Amino acid sequence: MGGTMNYFSSLLSGYSKYKKRKQFQTVELKVRMDCDGCELKVRNALSRMRGVQSVEINRKQYKVTVTGFVEPHKVVKRVQSTGKKAEIWPYVPYNVVAHPYAAPTYDKKAPPGYVRNMEVITISSQVVRPEDKLATMFSDDNPNACSIM
């Protein structure tokens, strides 16, 4: 109902295009920062951004957490405008992944207790989970499967 009222009020006020509100969300980024100056540059750029409520920086993990009414791709662009390489936080806690030490998920550069978020790997429009590949490797149905002698 609130969306309908906003739509009609925008029509009556002369706006021809209905503007959609941004949702409150948390955006986590991986940004390499080596010194206090780098951290200050990133913090200032993000805190001046419209819609940002808070900015938390963990320089040891290279993690920046932004909360507010923002869009993730715009936050990444804002950090990249400071000259820093930024990407969406690619790690999840290792206890939420089925096989945290499998080849595609394990990453030496990940902070302690985290692995890469590679739960589902898509190959040629077919969804293959890492545990499925390992289960079929030692299958009795597959004559070319590995055998232990």
Rank of each mutant, 00 (worst) to 15 (best):
K108R: 15
K30E: 04
S147C: 05
H99Q: 07
S125A: 08
A145Y: 07
R59S: 09
V55G: 04
V75N: 01
Y15L: 05
K74L: 09
A86L: 02
K133T: 02
H99W: 12
Q61D: 15
T67W: 02
G3D: 15
A98E: 12
T4P: 00
C38E: 04
C146A: 14
Q61R: 11
R129K: 14
N44K: 11
V27P: 02
S13D: 14
R129H: 10
T4G: 12
M5Y: 15
D140A: 13
K77P: 01
S139Q: 02
A103V: 11
T65K: 11
H99D: 09
C35W: 07
E71L: 10
I123E: 14
D141M: 02
V92N: 01
K22R: 13
Y91Q: 05
H99L: 14
R129V: 00
R59D: 02
K17D: 10
S139N: 13
F69C: 03
L29E: 03
K74S: 10
S81T: 03
E119G: 12
P72Q: 14
T26M: 09
P111G: 01
P104C: 09
T67Y: 02
S124H: 11
E56K: 15
G68C: 09
T82F: 04
Y7E: 07
R21K: 15
I57S: 04
S54F: 08
V97M: 07
P112Y: 14
N58L: 10
K19P: 02
K22Y: 10
S54P: 03
R48P: 00
S125G: 08
M149V: 01
R50V: 08
M33K: 04
Y62M: 04
R59G: 04
M149D: 03
Q23I: 06
C35E: 07
S124C: 09
T82S: 03
R129P: 01
A98M: 04
E39Y: 01
P130S: 08
G51Y: 08
M49A: 09
G51K: 09
M33W: 01
